[in-house]
Amino acid sequence: MTFLDLAGTVFVILGALLFASAALGIIRFFDPYTRISAVGTAGGLGIVLVVVGALLMQPTVTDTVKVLLIIGLQLATSAIGSIAIARSAYLTGAKVQRSLYNDLEPRR
């Protein structure tokens, strides 16, 4: 087992643990907005860690270029998807629960 294999294994397991945390988050958190935040950990850093770890196990030059493209695309598209879901969740009337401040609702 070389150093790259070891680093790849660590990255893959860290990324998988982020997925587990996100899964725990969508079960434990209490409204759609906090759940989107939990999924954001997996969709951003989680996938990046898993893919980089997979690359480190069999590194080639072409795959490195592809992984850089994947990271850029994944960060951009997961952000757009999260914004779209949050916006439609608000439009369908999901309340921001336990909020300490809310500028979209008139003051009580």
């Binding site: 982020l18 945390s21 725990l24 988050g25 434990r28 958190f29 209490f30 409204d31 907005y33 906090t34 935040s37 939990a38 954001g40 950990t41 951003g44 850093l45 921001v96 629960q97 336990r98 909020s99 300490l100 401040y101 809310n102 500028d103 979209l104």
Partner: peptide
Amino acid sequence: SNVAVVWDNLTPGQNSTPGLAR
């Protein structure tokens, strides 16, 4: 910020202070 969310997630109870700002 990932560490903050994961920490809140894995420790029992909620210490989040949610809100929506303009």
